[in-house]
Simulated assay, not measured.
Amino acid sequence: MTPIPIHDLDDPRLAVYRSLKATNATRSLDCFVVEGEKLVERLLASRFPTESVLLTDRHVDRLRATVPDGVPTYVVPFERVHDLVGFPFHRGALACGRRLPWPDWRALWGDATGPLRFVACPRVSNPENLGSIARLADAFAFDAILAGPSCPDPLSRRVLRVSMGSALRVPILTVDDPLALAADMTRELGVAFLAAVAGEATPFESVAIRDRLGIVLGDEDRGVDPAWVAACAESVTIPMPGRASSLNVSTAAAILLHHFRRRH
């Protein structure tokens, strides 16, 4: 790594890092930004090319051995990085990655012979929930997340931060019609989708375990859409003897993903 000191915050090489809070919508860009040392390291280790790294002068020595030669590494004074990114920032390291599409699902699993596990998030709207679900899918070895078009950008800063970089490893396949994709996967891969609902349904611990399954999670306000419930092989619920009527979607995901991974 050869550090490149920059003192002028208007330098065009810093454009992608400027006013991040005000320009959080990155879905339309061909690049994305990660924050913090751990995520910089995980971006460098991922399939996504690293376009550049931005460090404060206090963090250069800590990451000198991590950033490979050939990756432009810009250094700004610690006292000025907050002015650049647009909010108080103390993690000392950012990096810009270049987007790459995930391969088609048939290329990924069309020839698979073993178990397959998926999570479907047709309408999860909170980036922190999607980030938590990505981290859970990574932790419990689920193969991918199927996301609808209204879901947050999987490579947004908040999703990446909450997932601790798991969104760089777990395929998050964002498609216009995830229900049609689920139907294709059921027909061609034998995946049985289970709708996770609140209320009357089969307790999740009583559900027969399949080699190939998908867990469908509802959005934060309305739950699983009736069209998904009708298309799923079964509806499952997490019994709750207390007074709360439902769980946060990422909490429900933690219970279900752990259970179906452990029981497989």
Rank of each mutant, 00 (worst) to 15 (best):
V249N: 14
A244R: 13
N248D: 01
A244Q: 10
P154V: 08
A147F: 04
F142W: 01
I255G: 02
R18Y: 02
A95S: 06
G36E: 08
F118G: 02
D30Q: 14
A230D: 11
D104F: 04
L100S: 03
V34I: 13
P127S: 05
D10F: 07
I238D: 02
D138C: 15
H264G: 15
L194Y: 07
V197M: 11
A107R: 15
G148N: 14
C151W: 01
L116R: 08
G190T: 04
R62T: 10
P88E: 00
I215S: 06
E128W: 03
R106S: 10
R106Q: 12
G148L: 05
H82L: 01
A244C: 11
V76L: 09
R157E: 03
V67E: 03
R64V: 15
L43A: 13
H259Q: 03
S235D: 02
L213K: 00
V207G: 13
L173W: 01
S245Q: 15
E220I: 03
M185K: 02
R261V: 13
D8N: 12
G223I: 06
H264F: 12
V159W: 03
I133H: 01
E51A: 12
P68A: 10
P3T: 08
G131L: 08
V71R: 10
A139Q: 05
M240R: 13
R261A: 15
R222W: 02
P122T: 09
A244T: 15
D57H: 04
L44M: 10
R98E: 11
A65E: 05
A230S: 14
L217E: 09
G242C: 08
L155G: 05
W228V: 00
T73P: 08
H7G: 12
V159L: 06
R18D: 13
L43C: 10
A65G: 10
A22P: 08
L213H: 09
I172W: 05
N24K: 08
L179G: 03
C121R: 03
R243C: 13
D111I: 04
K38M: 15
F89N: 08
H258K: 15
S46W: 01
V16G: 10
A147R: 03
D104R: 09
G242E: 06
L108P: 12
A230C: 06
R123N: 11
P239Y: 04
S245A: 14
T237L: 01
V67Q: 03
N248Q: 07
A182P: 06
L116T: 11
A144S: 02
E220N: 02
R99M: 10
T186Y: 00
V224Q: 07
E205D: 13
G218A: 06
G114M: 05
G218C: 01
L44W: 09
T174A: 12
T26H: 10
H59C: 13
L29I: 05
V60I: 05
C232N: 04
A144F: 00
R80K: 13
V124Y: 00
H259T: 09
G242R: 12
R58A: 06
V197E: 09
D184M: 03
A139K: 10
P226H: 10
W109Y: 13
L257W: 07
E234A: 05
G190C: 06
T2F: 11
S156Y: 01
A227S: 14
T2K: 15
E234W: 00
P115R: 11
S206R: 15
L181A: 12
G223M: 02
A195L: 00
F32C: 11
G36N: 07
R62N: 14
R135W: 04
R27W: 02
D143M: 11
A95D: 06
E234Q: 09
G148I: 07
